[in-house]
C-alpha cells in the first residue's frame, strides 16, 4: 500500500497531486469564469443575433463531446485508483482509454470547425461566433495539452519504478484532465443550449 492510500484509509485530508497544480487549476478556472460572464453579457446585448447564430450549431456533436469527456474522466478516476493499488499496467490501459476519448473529442471538434468554416462562418462573422471560436478554441488548446500530459502519465506508468512520486505525478495529470472536463461542462450549455 502506498503512503497516499494509507493516508486516505485513515480518512485524513488528501490533496491529489501537489499544491502547484491546484493553484494553476483554480487560476485557469477563474479566467474561464470571466469568459462565461463576458459571454452572458454580450449575449444580453444582442439576444436575437446570438439565438440565430446558436441555432446553426450542431448540438448533437456538442452533446457527444460532453459525454466523451465525462467518460474519459471516469476512466481517469479508475486509472488513479488502479495505480494506488499498485496495478500500473491496468492504470496505463485505463489512461489509454481516456486518451482515446480525448482524441475522439478533438476529432469531433475539428469536424465541427470544418462544418462552420465550409459554411463561411469564421471568427469575424459576428460577436457570437467570435466568442464561440475563442472560448471553444482556448478549451481545445487545454484538451491538446491534456492529451500530451496523458501521454507523459502513460510513459511514467510504463516505467518499472513505483512509489509516492509516481502516484503524485499521475494525480497531477488526472486533476488537470478533470479540469478540462469541468470547463466543457459549463461551456456546452452556455454556448449551445442557453436561450
Amino acid at each position: 500500500m502506498t503512503d497516499i492510500t494509507a493516508t486516505m484509509a485513515r480518512c485524513e485530508p488528501h490533496m491529489p497531486g501537489e499544491p502547484g497544480i491546484w493553484i494553476f487549476i483554480m487560476g485557469d478556472m477563474l479566467v474561464f469564469a470571466l469568459f462565461f460572464s463576458v459571454f452572458a453579457f454580450y449575449r444580453g446585448e444582442q439576444p436575437a443575433l446570438f439565438s440565430a447564430s446558436q441555432a446553426t450549431l450542431n448540438t448533437g456533436l456538442g452533446l457527444t463531446n460532453t459525454l466523451l469527456l465525462l467518460t474519459s474522466s471516469w476512466f481517469v478516476v479508475e486509472a488513479v485508483k488502479a495505480v494506488r493499488r499498485g496495478s500500473g499496467k491496468l492504470s496505463c490501459r485505463l489512461f489509454f482509454l481516456a486518451f482515446l476519448c480525448g482524441l475522439a473529442f478533438s476529432g469531433i471538434k475539428l469536424v465541427e470547425y470544418n462544418e462552420k468554416i465550409a459554411a463561411g462562418i469564421t471568427l469575424t462573422s459576428n460577436d457570437f461566433f467570435m466568442f464561440y471560436y475563442i472560448f471553444t478554441g482556448l478549451h481545445f488548446v487545454h484538451v491538446i495539452i491534456g492529451l500530451v500530459m496523458l501521454v507523459f502519465v502513460m510513459l511514467t506508468l510504463a516505467r518499472p519504478a513505483t512509489g509516492e512520486q509516481k502516484v503524485r505525478f499521475v494525480e497531477v495529470g488526472a486533476s488537470y484532465w478533470h479540469m478540462v472536463d469541468v470547463l466543457w461542462i459549463v461551456l456546452f450549455p452556455l454556448i449551445y443550449l442557453v436561450k
Partner: peptide, 27 residues
C-alpha cells in the same frame, strides 16, 4: 428552462469536483 440547464451544469461540475477530483477528501 435556461436557468435549470445552467444549474444542472454547475451541479455536474460539483459532482466532478467532489468525486472525480477527490475534493471531498481534500484539505
Amino acid at each position: 428552462v435556461t436557468t435549470a440547464i445552467m444549474l444542472l451544469g454547475f451541479f455536474k461540475v460539483r459532482l466532478v469536483g467532489m468525486y472525480f477530483m477527490e475534493l471531498r477528501v481534500a484539505p
